[in-house]
Structure formats: C-alpha cells, structure tokens
C-alpha cells in the first residue's frame, strides 16, 4: 500500500499562486464573490502563505504553500462524529461529503486551518459550470471541504496502471498544484517507496514538517529556503 506524500521546496517556490488557481480549476472550488470573501468565506484548498521578516531596507519575504497536510495522526479525524473525516489505507485524510453533517469540529481541530466550509450552496454563473470537472464531486451547503491530494487523479492513475497491468510509476500521479507549478517546487509521490523522488526529498537535511511539535505527523515535507551570505 502506498503512502502519498508531498514535498514543497521553498527555495523553488516563488509565490506566484499558480497552484491556487490550478486547484480551483481541478477541484470545482467555487468562487464566493467579494461580499462573502470579505466575510472570510473564500475557499482556497491550497494557499501561499507569506511572511515578512525584518524592516525596510533589510526586509525579507517568505512564501510557503500550505494545503491539507494529510497527517498520519490527524486531529480532524477523531473529532468527527460521523466518520466524514477519516483515514484511508493509503494514508489520505478522506473527507466524505455524504457523511458530513457540518459540525465544523474538524476545521477547529486542524492546526493548519486547511479546511473550508460551504456556507452556501456553491454556484456558478452560467455557462461557467461547463468547466466543472466531472471527476470531482460538487459540494453543497453545510459540508466541509479540503485538499484531497487530487484523489481523483490518484484513483485515475491507479485504475490506468491496473488496466495496463503494471505498477504505478514515480511521478505518474501529479495533483493539479504539482502539475501546474512552473518552478517544480512541489513534488508528489509515494513515501513508502524509498527511491521515489518525494522520499528522497523528504529525507533532505533541508526538510522539516509544518508544526511538527503539534504531533500531527504530516505527509508534506517543507524544504527550507537556503540562505546565502
């Protein structure tokens, strides 16, 4: 069984935000409009966090893409009363929209604030709905949604490999954010396979996990931006 993981190289990431839009495009995430956005209802399964360091003129800016970290020890899972949030065999934190009754407890428990709630039924001004990806569920009002590591692409690739009676190749599965990243800052793959690109990056001395001390054991490794004198 695989264990899906990601590595984000902060030395490559330049903060352009392509992953954000790629994710919207792939995963049928609706835009909420200005009024709702101003009320904190914008949904971005992946976001590029930016932090200032220092003051003018010795100022630096750090970017960090943050998506659901698909924790091994995920705080969102035990708190859900209906198993809408649960752990799959291949290490994904599944969000099963059917089962979600909207307690939003998972989102409170998530230290990364990676979960987003549908405050209203998602809507698209016609004919923008023609773009919707039929491989991804349309969520409705009252459910929680979040980054799935593009599970539809994972399942699609697995199916393809099984049809062709072969093993999955490293790098064959690319979530939308990984696929769209021009700087190749994001790498996705199987952490169980010690030879996979993502495994090698996960072992990098530059690597660390986000909020490691909360004990969530995330599947995303961040490779620190190197400093130059």
């Amino acid at each position: 069984m695989a264990r899906w993981g990601m590595a984000a190289d902060l030395d490559r990431c330049n903060g352009c935000g392509a992953c954000v839009v790629a994710c919207h495009s792939e995963n049928n995430i609706s835009t909420v409009g200005d009024e709702q956005a101003s009320r904190g209802r914008a949904k971005h399964w992946i976001r590029v966090e930016r932090y200032w360091e220092g003051d003018f003129p010795d100022v630096r800016l750090k970017f960090r893409p943050v998506m659901c970290q698909q924790c091994d020890n995920a705080p969102c899972e035990p708190v859900c009363p209906t198993y809408a949030s649960h752990h799959t065999e291949d290490g994904l934190n599944a969000q099963v929209y059917n089962r979600c009754i909207g307690t939003r407890y998972c989102a409170n428990a998530c230290p990364y604030n990676a979960r987003f709630f549908d405050f209203f039924n998602p809507s698209w001004d016609k004919p923008l709905q023609l773009q919707l990806n039929p491989d991804v569920s349309l969520r409705e009002v009252g459910v929680m949604e979040k980054c799935t590591f593009c599970v539809q692409r994972i399942r699609g690739a697995q199916l393809q490999a099984r049809t062709e009676d072969r093993a999955l190749r490293d790098g064959e599965i690319q979530p939308a954010c990984v696929q769209g990243c021009a700087a190749k800052a994001l790498v996705f793959g199987d952490l169980e396979d010690p030879e996979s690109h993502v495994s090698r990056l996960a072992r990098s001395p530059r690597g660390s996990k986000l909020l490691e001390d909360v004990g969530t054991q995330p599947a995303v490794t961040y490779l620190a931006r190197a400093t130059q004198v």
Partner: peptide
C-alpha cells in the same frame, strides 16, 4: 434554508 453563511462564522473561526 439559506445556508449557514448568514451567520458570522468564517474561516478559521468555525464556532
């Protein structure tokens, strides 16, 4: 009927 959005709940304050 309209959705939970009529409340002030938002990301990340869900309660």
């Amino acid at each position: 009927r309209n959705g939970y959005g009529i409340t002030g709940i938002k990301w990340p304050v869900y309660w």
